[in-house]
Design a protein around this nucleic acid. Structure first.
Length: 592
RNA sequence: GCGCCCGUAGCUCAGUUGGAUAGAGCACCGACCUUCUAAGUCGGUGGUCGCAGGUUCGAAUCCUGUCGGGCGCGCCA
């Protein structure tokens, strides 16, 4: 509907005398928006005010000229000049009826743009370290990323979802050592667990599977492990030194090959857990990209070479530095340490170059707000390698706070008492999880109340929206119980019976859906869709409740034409709610 | 100290990338409700959009400053 108005205005602008409006003003896409106040019609445009200055015209006079140049259209009842120069469009009832018909005809594809009409986007999200299970914060990333992917696809973009696995570096060695020590414990060895190791219980399961696969083959005596190690922090030593020492000891005792086995087993155990957790939540990826593969494929060498050849690096203190300050970063960054090891940043720029080389127009990295400092340097890396820095876009997600009935649940990674995503999902269900995680703007901290999420009342928005969907199904069941049938064709032919205030409001709300989708995708803001669905559910409940006030306003009335018209409206509403919930990854049940 | 985000009704938050008289839910107040049978429905009170300047036809929205809150500033990942 909106595009119809846009086209009308564009046609009118093109028809204006050349001295009135510049070519650019003519070619610009006119701004059209829904009115807030019904007395202003259905849509309003500010084109006249926007171009008045450049055209050296009084805005109202320019609006006047545009209005008289507007071609006639069956969906427009009348056009008015209002206020400082707004052009207000009042649509015909037939325009809404046609849109209602489109919703019913197009069903699940209503509001969706043709595939691949937009950009080729690589969306990276979650990418948690494979050293522990997902916690609630990751849940927000998963839900946001998955919903954003759906929104972008609906907007016509081609989307590739990717999870970057940080499977190299010291933290992976620490993980492996911790698993191995738990394995030794299982075999009765009193292994000295490092104070800054991963203490969570999840390692016990991986240690058990390590034993299942290798039996006693990786066993070493506790004495051999302990012999000559420096003191750990609790004993007055340095925990980092101690950790490095015990990693070195494990390597020495197991041999590179043996240690590698433990690393690989631990990593695959952890990633399998993460993957299944996400899959249970309905979040899947097109590719799980291994950081380690960047080393073996030579991608890191390649990107460092690109940086060096273009003169964006230098040597200092034996390390290789990237001149990040030339690209807006606060300080230069080390990419290769004195000892020849590459930094995390080195693999990161290699990864982003790889994304570009795979042909993606736009790279979206969904990151936690605490990673914001890293955006400038990766963008700088892209620029230095000759890639457009604007191709990288980074929505930063704020923290999640859990509440139980108003009381905050304390969580600390250090204490190991964080709530896992799996625990949360099992307690409140996948639907509530997916919904609550995208309910707020991503740059707003999120308060997640477990009791509210579980409640079956109108205060719980996910329940409220799903219930609106189920309510339509319930009306249809009622219809069948009374031996009546819904005649869709008769409904379509009698949409002009939908004259009640509630019906009209519901109809208007429905037709906003494509605009909401487009906006939510463009602003990377799934919560916009959440708010819309809430409003839509509210309108549906309102239309339904009108029947309780006045029996003549019920859906199931004796008059067949009116009944079927109302059923069409309800069916269309059900369709939109279902489509919207599908994008959020929330189910649309027929009964609650 | 520097950087990023936030500040809107008593509370939790929207606000269509600068539009017309700033909205919703909860809470509060009042009325209605044995139903197309899911304890709900309808109406009402409530705001100097943190503060001070600026930009322009027009600012909660953009710019500058300032106050308050959160996060980040490793040759960790």
């Amino acid at each position: 509907m909106k595009s119809t108005i846009e086209k009308l205005i564009s046609t009118a602008l093109a028809a204006l005398p050349p001295d009135l409006l510049s070519a650019e003003a003519r070619a610009a896409r006119p701004e059209v928006e829904r009115t807030r106040d019904a007395s202003h019609g259905d849509y309003a445009s500010n084109v006249a005010m926007r171009h008045a200055k450049a055209a050296k015209q009084n805005p109202r006079a320019l609006a006047e000229a545009i209005i008289s140049a507007l071609p006639a259209d069956p969906s427009v009842a009348r056009v008015e000049l209002a206020g400082p120069g707004f052009i207000n469009f009042h649509l015909t009832a037939a325009a809404y009826h046609a849109e209602l018909g489109a919703i019913i005809d197009q069903g699940a594809s209503y509001g969706i743009q043709p595939p691949a009409s937009g950009e080729k986007i690589l969306l990276e999200f979650v990418s948690s370290n494979p050293t522990g299970p997902l916690h609630v914060g990751h849940g927000r990333h998963a839900a946001y990323g998955a919903a954003l992917a759906n929104l972008l696809i609906a907007a016509g973009h081609s989307v590739h979802r990717e999870f970057y696995i940080n499977d190299s570096g010291r933290q992976v060695d620490i993980l492996a050592v911790c698993v191995w020590l738990r394995y030794l414990e299982r075999l009765g060895e009193d292994a000295p667990f490092p104070s800054n190791g991963y203490k969570g219980e999840y390692l016990l399961a991986i240690a058990a599977s390590l034993e299942a696969e290798f039996s006693h083959k990786l066993r070493q005596s506790a004495a051999a492990v302990r012999d000559g190690l420096p003191l750990d922090e609790p004993e007055g030593g340095d925990k980092e030194q101690y950790t490095d020492a015990i990693i070195a000891r494990a390597r020495a005792l197991l041999g590179e090959e043996g240690f590698r086995k433990v690393v690989d087993h631990s990593l695959s155990g952890m990633t399998a857990d993460i993957r299944s957790d996400l899959a249970e939540m309905g979040v899947t990826f097109d590719r799980w990209f291994s950081e380690r593969s960047l080393t073996t494929s030579g991608a890191i060498d390649e990107s460092l070479k690109r940086l060096e050849q273009s003169g964006h690096t230098y040597r200092k203190d034996g390390a290789l530095w990237f001149r990040a300050t030339e690209f807006g970063d606060d300080e230069d960054r080390v990419v290769e340490r004195e000892n020849g090891m590459r930094t995390y940043f080195a693999s990161d720029i290699a990864y982003h170059l790889d994304k570009r080389l795979r042909g993606f127009d736009r790279l979206i990295d969904v990151l936690g707000a605490d990673h914001h400092g890293y955006v400038a340097r990766v963008r700088g890396g892209l620029a230095a390698m000759g890639e457009p820095p604007d191709s990288l876009e980074v929505p930063l997600l704020q923290l999640v706070n859990l509440y139980r009935g108003g009381e905050k649940i304390a969580m600390g990674k250090r204490e190991g008492n964080f709530v896992t995503l799996r625990q949360l999902r099992h307690e409140v269900g996948n639907d509530a999880c997916r919904f609550y995680f995208v309910m707020r703007s991503h740059d707003q901290q999120l308060d997640f109340d477990l009791e509210l999420a579980k409640s079956r009342t109108a205060e719980n928005p996910v329940f409220y929206i799903q219930y609106a969907h189920a309510r339509v199904a319930s009306v249809l069941r009622q219809l069948a119980e009374r031996g009546l049938e819904y005649d869709a064709a008769r409904g379509r032919a009698n949409l002009d019976r939908l004259t009640e205030a509630h019906e009209r409001k519901l109809m208007v709300a429905l037709t906003r859906y494509p605009e909401v989708l487009a906006l939510a995708a463009a602003t990377r803001a799934p919560h916009t869709l959440v708010n819309f669905l809430r409003e839509l559910a509210n309108e549906l409940h309102g239309a339904y409740a009108a029947g309780n006030e006045n029996a003549a306003h019920r859906v199931i009335v004796d008059d067949e034409a009116t009944r079927d018209a109302r059923l069409s409206l309800f069916q269309a509403t059900r369709q939109i709610i279902r489509n919207g919930l599908a994008i959020l990854g929330v189910s649309a049940p027929d009964t609650m």
